[in-house]
């Protein structure tokens, strides 16, 4: 269980994290979604006690992070897989962590096995690791103490498709056994496929949160047709609101508040063929996320 309450971090006159409140519950995977620079990593660093908050609180299993007597056994944290001493071998990184937590040496071999790092790879220095291998090593460090809570910042970065699939299964399994998983990503799809609950953050603020079903639910209809313009006119004439999914791309189709059946009837009456007709589920979230991302990119370009 992770509870974040009114968390705020100010750098000069820039609010990196702005009164963020959410929780990640046991038995569920919580996705922390936002464009790059939205405040995800800062929030997670504050949670792990690495960055002091300006105001607000964050707790893990009901306690402040700093009050956890042996954090590695209760919460596994992977914030940046590249943040390792480059001159240490992968195995030594795990041994140091295991020794700090007071775990037997055998646990290191188990973890190497779990994340599929071979004996030979484990003996190499981290400077020679690919990002994917570092990510696996970081995950092994996080899982070492068999913690109830996992916090992972962009864990899919650098993993190949098989690796991403493997990690997804691992995290789902952790939640299924009653663990709490909080992971961040700047990719909507990544979060959609794994998360039970989603927290969307942009410009330091939580802009949406809820279960995946709630957030993806959309009553509107999505329709694609060769003659999008004519269909839009017909729907508008029938009294429905219509908008282009992507103003720049007519083949992306239209979203309308008319029902599936009504949309079909309007098209039939107008004599317009259809390419696709379905519920617009997920469109709202995608729209909002694209909007957030576009805002961020404009700021970066400015």
């Amino acid at each position: 269980m992770i509870e974040i309450h009114e968390l705020t971090k100010r750098y000069g006159d820039h609010l990196a994290v702005d009164h963020v409140t959410f929780s990640a519950r046991p038995g569920r995977v919580t996705g922390f979604l936002g464009p790059n620079g939205a405040g995800k990593s800062t929030s997670l660093r504050i949670l792990a006690g690495l960055t002091p908050a300006t105001s607000g609180t964050a707790s893990v299993l009901g306690r402040r992070y700093a009050d956890l007597p042996n954090p590695g056994l209760e919460i596994g944290v992977l914030l940046d897989a590249s943040a390792q001493h480059a001159g240490r071998t992968g195995r030594e990184v795990l041994r140091v962590a295991a020794e700090t937590m007071g775990l037997p040496r055998a646990r290191v071999a188990e973890m190497l096995d779990l994340v599929s790092l071979t004996e030979q790879e484990a003996g190499r220095r981290v400077r020679d690791y690919s990002l994917g291998m570092r990510q696996r090593l970081g995950l092994a460090t996080a899982l070492l103490g068999d913690p109830a809570v996992l916090v992972l910042d962009e864990p899919a970065n650098g993993l190949d498709p098989a690796g991403i699939r493997w990690m997804r299964d691992l995290l789902r399994d952790h939640a299924r056994r009653g663990g709490t998983v909080l992971l961040s990503s700047h990719l909507l799809h990544e979060i959609e496929v794994i998360a039970d609950d989603i927290v969307v953050i942009g410009h330091g603020r939580v802009v949406a949160q809820g279960t995946k079903e709630e957030l993806l639910h959309d009553d509107r209809t999505l329709v694609r047709a060769p003659e999008v313009g004519a269909l839009a006119v017909a729907l508008t004439a029938a009294g429905w609101t219509v908008e282009r999914v992507d103003p720049a791309d007519p083949t992306a189709g239209l979203r309308t508040d008319a029902s599936l059946a009504t949309t079909g009837q309007v098209a039939l009456a107008a004599g317009l063929p259809l390419l696709e007709l379905r519920a617009a589920d997920g469109a709202g979230l995608e729209e909002m996320f694209l909007q957030l991302t576009a805002d961020t990119q404009r700021e970066a370009a400015a």
Binding site: S23, R25, P26, G27, R28, R176, R177, G178, G179, D197, V200, G202, V206, V207, A208, Q209, G210, T211, E214, L215, G284, L285, E287, M288, Q291, L292, D295
Partner: peptide, 21 residues
């Protein structure tokens, strides 16, 4: 910027009856 509904009611229990390790 659109804001979707926030749902505190989402704080339901963990999926049905799985004993937590």
């Amino acid at each position: 910027m659109t804001t979707l509904t926030t749902s505190p009611s989402a704080a339901a229990a963990a999926p049905g009856g799985t004993p937590s390790a």
